[in-house]
Deep mutational scan, measured.
Amino acid sequence: RIRTTFTSAQLKELERVFAETHYPDIYTREELALKIDLTEARVQVWFQNRRAKFRK
């Protein structure tokens, strides 16, 4: 699998949801994935990585 490059619009939306909750449920992730045209798996991994970055 190649590395996913996020558009600024996708990042803006991901960060907006992250500001609300660091642990979005499956429904939130799936809805977000559809909205920004990514797979739910990519959204899930983005949140994992974002939480790791947040803890640092």
Rank of each mutant, 00 (worst) to 15 (best):
L34D: 13
R42M: 15
A19Q: 12
R16D: 10
K35Y: 01
R42Y: 11
T39N: 08
V45W: 11
T39F: 01
K12H: 10
E40Q: 09
N49Q: 15
I26K: 14
W46R: 04
R50P: 01
K12E: 11
E40V: 09
F54N: 14
Y27Q: 15
R3S: 15
W46I: 01
R3K: 15
Y23S: 07
K53I: 14
R50K: 09
A33W: 00
A52R: 12
W46S: 01
R29D: 00
A41C: 07
K53E: 15
A41Y: 08
T28R: 14
V17G: 02
T7E: 02
F18V: 00
A19E: 14
V43M: 04
S8D: 14
R1T: 10
Y23T: 05
W46P: 04
D25E: 04
L11E: 15
T21W: 03
R29P: 03
Q10L: 04
W46V: 01
V43T: 02
Q44K: 13
V17P: 01
L38N: 09
F6Y: 14
K53W: 07
V43K: 05
T28D: 05
A52K: 08
T21I: 06
D25H: 03
T28Q: 15
K35M: 05
A19V: 07
R42P: 05
I26V: 14
A19N: 13
W46M: 02
T39W: 02
W46G: 02
K12G: 07
K53N: 12
F54V: 08
L14Q: 01
L11W: 08
F6N: 05
S8Y: 05
S8N: 08
P24G: 01
W46D: 00
L32Q: 04
I36C: 14
R55L: 14
Y27L: 14
N49T: 12
Y23D: 10
E13A: 08
E30W: 06
K35D: 04
V43R: 02
Q48K: 14
R3H: 08
P24W: 02
H22F: 04
E30M: 11
A33H: 06
Q48H: 10
E13R: 05
E40I: 07
E40Y: 05
T5V: 10
A19M: 06
L34H: 13
E40F: 03
V17D: 05
K12N: 08
W46C: 03
E20M: 10
V17I: 11
E40K: 04
A52G: 08
K56G: 05
F6T: 07
T39S: 12
H22I: 02
L11N: 08
N49L: 10
H22N: 06
R29I: 15
E31R: 13
F18E: 02
P24Q: 03
E31T: 11
K56S: 15
I26D: 10
P24M: 01
E30R: 14
Q10M: 04
H22Q: 15
A33G: 09
I26Q: 13
A52T: 09
E31I: 12
R1S: 12
S8L: 07
T7F: 02
K12Y: 08
E40A: 10
T7K: 06
Q44V: 07
I2M: 12
D37W: 03
I36V: 14
T7W: 00
T5K: 11
R55A: 15
T7R: 04
N49A: 14
K12D: 08
A9K: 09
R50I: 03
L11V: 13
E31C: 09
K12R: 13
F18N: 06
W46F: 02
E15T: 02
D25R: 01
E15Q: 02
V43Q: 00
A33T: 01
R51F: 03
I26S: 12
A52S: 12
I36M: 11
I36S: 06
A33M: 00
V17Q: 05
D37P: 00
K53A: 14
W46T: 01
P24I: 07
A41Q: 13
D37H: 09
K12A: 13
D37Y: 00
Q10R: 02
E40S: 06
R55K: 12
R1H: 08
K35G: 05
T5Q: 08
K53Y: 06
T39A: 08
F18T: 02
V43E: 00
R29K: 01
H22Y: 01
I26T: 11
T28N: 01
L11M: 07
Q48F: 02
R51Y: 03
P24L: 01
R1V: 09
R51H: 01
L11A: 08
Q48T: 11
F54P: 09
S8E: 13
H22W: 07
E20F: 11
L32N: 00
T7C: 04
L38Y: 01
A52I: 11
R16E: 10
P24D: 06
Y27A: 15
L14W: 01
I36L: 15
L32R: 04
L11K: 07
R29L: 13
T21S: 08
I26Y: 15
E20T: 11
F18W: 13
L32E: 06
Y27V: 15
E30H: 09
E30C: 13
R51M: 05
Q48L: 07
E15P: 02
W46E: 00
R50T: 05
V45H: 12
A9W: 09
V43Y: 01
K56C: 14
I2V: 11
K35H: 01
A9N: 11
R55Q: 13
T21Q: 08
L34T: 15
Y27E: 15
T5E: 14
A9S: 10
R51E: 00
R3V: 12
F54W: 14
R50W: 02
R55S: 14
T28V: 12
E15S: 00
E15I: 00
F54C: 11
L11Q: 09
L32A: 01
S8R: 10
E40L: 06
V45P: 05
F54D: 13
R50M: 08
E30D: 05
S8P: 08
L11H: 09
T28I: 08
L14N: 01
V45I: 11
K12S: 12
L34R: 15
E30N: 10
F6H: 15
I36G: 02
T7I: 01
A52C: 06
T5G: 13
R51K: 05
L14S: 02
K56E: 14
E20H: 09
A33E: 05
V45R: 11
Q44F: 10
N49F: 08
I2R: 10
Y23F: 09
I36Y: 10
A9L: 09
H22A: 10
F18M: 01
R50Y: 07
I36A: 10
A41K: 13
E13K: 00
V45M: 15
F47C: 03
R55W: 13
A33F: 00
T21K: 01
L38C: 14
H22R: 10
Q44N: 11
A41G: 09
V43S: 01
R29C: 08
E31F: 05
F54R: 07
R55T: 13
L38E: 14
L34N: 12
E30Q: 12
T21D: 05
R29W: 04
V43W: 01
Q44E: 11
L38D: 11
Q48D: 09
V17F: 01
T39V: 05
T28C: 08
E13S: 04
L34G: 13
R3D: 15
L38G: 08
I2Q: 06
E13V: 05
S8F: 06
Q10D: 04
P24C: 02
T39G: 04
E30F: 06
V17K: 11
R16S: 15
E30K: 15
F47A: 04
K12Q: 12
I26A: 15
D37A: 08
Y27F: 12
R29A: 03
R50G: 01
R51W: 03
W46Y: 02
T7Y: 01
V45C: 11
R29Y: 06
T5S: 12
Y27W: 10
E20D: 09
L34Q: 12
